[in-house]
Design a protein around this nucleic acid. Structure first.
Lengths: 194, 194
DNA sequence: CGGACTGTACCGATCGGTCGGTATACTACG
DNA sequence: CGTAGTATACCGACCGATCGGTACAGTCCG
């Protein structure tokens, strides 16, 4: 595994990464394959040697990162204390956004550009992820720790976290740790009784 | 002024409305002028008799609604109590999203598709709007009503409100009044001291 | 040699936008 | 009155450019 490895996998990874950045910056439909080919310094034929289609690129990005989020969520579900579970979920979410902002932006914002069946599949993964949060809210309510479950509260809390992909800056003065700590504290305030 | 008025202004309004809906549903670059012309049942020439360009359409929508939001914000600034000012801002914002969801979606999500100068202009209006919220947070902090001003709290609160354009449904069981009341209550919790 | 990798020339389709021309209604003028 | 003139609203054919994707020949390397 030398640094100048040029095998298929690493080239493909380069392409996917560049595509995620471009799609996040300007939107899937606004980015042409010529732009992508220039970004990775490859000819048209070489580009299509590594990928099947533009849509596949979007699909791979959108599916991979919501899947990762779901896998992290599964580990969070092992935490029995609803308050701590919320904090773990929040921490994972903000960390993912901070470390893969472009990919998560594509994952959240460009789902609509997928073909119908693929969009449905990816949206199901999004729903599953939200479900984990919802379950934590309900568990906390049943244990008398949180206010009774309210979908508006769920949407409000998720909005606070999700929206961060739009303003967070990797080189910003605010680190992911700081943000997730404050957001977690605010989420618990929103859920508190009384 | 009969109901079947076909003058320039009303036709143009029909076009802008249809464009906002299409842009919100599928994204600016994904919508072709042929689609728009079919949506308003007009030929290509007639369409361009009423508008100058596709970009102008996007510009008009994005600028008009963030301007409206700013105008409402100005009236909110007359309220001296920071807590009530927040509630007024939240109420206006949620009401606007509920009553003009497609237009606000375009206003928030499709700014990136504007040309550079226009995007800068519209983003400045967004910044101005956020500034009104920020000022309310700072005023509350100075009066000892809110925690010290924290940009993360500001982003969190705004995220909660803004994100609603993605999930709110005009025919949903949740009315704009319910949502804004709960969001306002949560915003005040987030800002409370201690 | 053979196969992985690459660049280039090219494909049909579609893009946003323009063109010349038509139908209709209102106004002006003899 | 009739009719010529003007403005508005509209149509559909058409424009050059660009779209995503393919064909194919050449190169490099084990």
């Amino acid at each position: 595994m030398s640094v100048d490895t040029k095998d298929d996998r690493s080239q493909r990874a380069r392409i996917v990464k560049a595509a995620a950045r471009l799609f996040a910056e300007r939107g899937y439909h606004a980015v042409g394959m010529t732009e992508l080919q220039n970004a990775v310094q490859l000819g048209r034929g070489a580009l299509y040697h590594h990928i099947r289609s533009k849509d596949d690129l979007l699909y791979d990005i959108a599916r991979e990162y919501i899947t990762d989020l779901n896998e992290l969520a599964v580990t969070a579900e092992q935490e029995t204390d609803p308050r701590r579970r919320i904090c773990i979920l929040g921490h994972h979410l903000i960390s993912m956004i901070a470390s893969h902002q472009a990919e998560l932006t594509v994952c959240f914002r460009e789902v609509q550009s997928l073909t119908d069946t693929r969009r449905a599949e990816v949206l199901a993964l999004h729903t599953r992820y939200e479900r984990v949060w919802k379950d934590a809210f309900i568990a906390g309510a049943e244990q008398g720790l949180f206010r009774p479950y309210d979908p508006v509260v769920l949407k409000g809390v998720l909005g606070m976290y999700f929206y961060s992909y739009l303003w967070m800056r990797p080189d910003g003065s605010l680190g992911a740790e700081t943000i997730s700590e404050r957001f977690n504290e605010m989420a618990l305030r929103m859920l508190a009784i009384g």
